[in-house]
Amino acid sequence: MTRQTVTILVLAGLLVLALVGMRVGWVHRRRRTLDAVPTLPAVPTDAGALLAGPFEAVYVSTTREGDWLDRVAAHGLGVRSPARVSVHATGVHVARTGAPDVFVPAHALRAAALAPGIAGKVVGRDHLVVLTWEPAAQPGDEPDGARGLDTGLLPRHAADRDAIVAAALTLIPDVPAAVSGTEEKP
Rank of each mutant, 00 (worst) to 15 (best):
G25F: 04
P143C: 08
L149P: 01
A146P: 05
L114M: 07
T97D: 13
Y59K: 10
T132G: 03
I8F: 14
L51A: 14
G117M: 05
A178N: 12
V92M: 08
T132D: 01
W133R: 05
G148S: 07
W68M: 13
A99D: 00
V122M: 01
T63S: 05
V58I: 11
A49G: 15
V60E: 01
R64C: 00
P38C: 12
A83Y: 00
L14M: 09
P176C: 08
L114S: 08
V79N: 13
V175R: 01
S61F: 04
A112F: 08
H93F: 09
V104R: 01
A168Q: 06
G78V: 09
G140H: 01
G145A: 09
L51P: 02
V102K: 09
L15C: 14
A178H: 15
V16C: 07
A89L: 03
R156V: 14
A95C: 07
I164L: 10
L131D: 01
A115G: 10
G21H: 03
G48A: 02
V104C: 03
H88V: 09
R31T: 08
M1A: 11
V92F: 07
R29C: 02
Q138L: 13
D70I: 03
A146V: 05
A47D: 00
A52N: 04
V92K: 07
G91E: 05
T33N: 11
H75W: 12
A111D: 13
W26D: 15
M1K: 00
D162K: 12
I8A: 15
R147V: 12
F55P: 06
S86R: 07
V104L: 00
V85I: 14
V60F: 03
M22Q: 13
S86L: 03
A49M: 14
I172Q: 04
S81V: 06
R156F: 07
V179S: 09
M22I: 02
R32N: 12
L9M: 14
P176G: 10
T33E: 13
H93M: 08
A99S: 06
G21E: 06
P139A: 07
M22D: 13
A12Y: 11
D150G: 02
S81T: 08
P54G: 10
L40N: 03
R71M: 14
L14G: 14
D160N: 10
L169Q: 11
H93Y: 12
